[in-house]
Design a protein around this nucleic acid. Structure first.
Lengths: 205, 205
DNA sequence: GTTGACATATGACAGTGTGTCATATAAAAT
DNA sequence: ATTTTATATGACACACTGTCATATGTCAAC
């Protein structure tokens, strides 16, 4: 987390710094991003940066988590919209995530995050379904899920399902961003994989 | 790929360099690893390094792919051992991968690779099931799979299954390596998720 | 309105790393 | 023996990081 000094900053100064950082993290992945670049763009002295943040990662995950918080809230609303059908919600979310990013800088930021995913970045993304990150949000999701059509009834089993889904979604988004799949192809492929998970791949005897 | 100069090197010199590199990549993740360290340990001049490799990544992915090639071959043998049952093979492989790493340096190398996974690293891992990386190996796998118990019969459907499985496996290994799951807990969790995929999560009406 | 205590700002600096290049050396070809 | 080609070497220019001594601002208390 950024230090208090950062939050005490006058709005325009804080915004300038955030804009500069977003620009840099949209340009290249975290490990390639340079503080030197950010402070130059923001027009602040180098020393000030360390007054506000522990280091590059501190700033980075602050920004990333801020962006993903929006997605989290959005997912709950989508889930409600689909009457708790978690598969429909997931496919919808996946599609929206890929298609609904008109801001190129935002798109590149996310792309760089995903293509150079550290464990921490992956956690930030898949935390949509992880109680350790945001217990409050987690229960909202769990409670919004309609279990009627599902085989499992226990929270624990539900969690396993969510984990499988988010692992597959995460992987698919990376494939989509790195390869030459169109939005439609990617969505189609994800749907197919969700169907597999829905109905299973074994022939029931 | 390393340059020819590297492969022309006398064995002992090449080995010394590889040993030094493996040590460095076991110490820290790719982005933190330093060429300066590697050449110091190997006792070669800095200039020579660039005679052999394009850069750090060149050396890194050469080593990683070499390691994963063993795993690929091993997977085919496991699949045969389980008479083509892809779920049994996958669970077995997952367990072996976690448990059968007695060499601490090797373990740390893989751990660093996974916890700081770039798109390229993830590709290297999941390429077990990707025809674009090693067509020959891919067909060996595809042909070894027993489709009797599976709903799907087409290669294309099979590929979707494999992709889902490898995405889930990849994700689980990362969770296992970063968190405090024991080998047994991790294996159990993976089994549960494989069962979900086998039989599906929807109640068939 | 002066003082002191505390918060913030600043940029020079030491340390570390990268990739290149001119030069030296060895090996092979003619 | 001489030219050509391959390899070796380490100094160098450049880039970046994190720190620290010093400067500047803020604000409550007297």
């Amino acid at each position: 987390m950024p230090k208090m000094t950062f939050f005490n900053l006058p709005d325009h100064k804080r915004k300038k710094l955030i804009d500069a950082a977003e620009k840099e993290f949209a340009r290249v992945a975290l490990f390639e991003a340079s503080i030197a670049n950010i402070v130059k763009t923001a027009g602040i002295p180098r020393g000030s940066f360390y007054q506000y943040f522990q280091d590059k990662e501190d700033l980075y995950f602050y920004l990333l988590d801020k962006k993903l918080d929006e997605s989290k809230r959005y997912f709950v609303s989508i889930l409600d919209h689909h009457n708790g059908d978690i598969f429909e919600a997931m496919v919808d979310m996946y599609h929206k995530f890929l298609v609904m990013m008109p801001d190129e800088e935002e798109h590149n930021f996310i792309k760089n995050a995903l293509l150079y995913a550290t464990n921490k970045v992956e956690n930030s993304f898949t935390s949509i379904f992880d109680s350790t990150y945001d217990n409050n949000h987690y229960y909202k999701v769990i409670e919004s899920i309609n279990r009627e059509k599902l085989k499992v009834k226990e929270d624990e089993d539900l969690l396993s399902i969510l984990q499988v889904m988010s692992a597959v979604a995460f992987h698919n988004i990376i494939v989509k961003l790195s390869n030459k799949l169109s939005d439609d192809e990617a969505t189609e492929q994800f749907k197919v994989q969700m169907e597999l998970l829905k109905h299973g791949v074994y022939q029931e005897t």
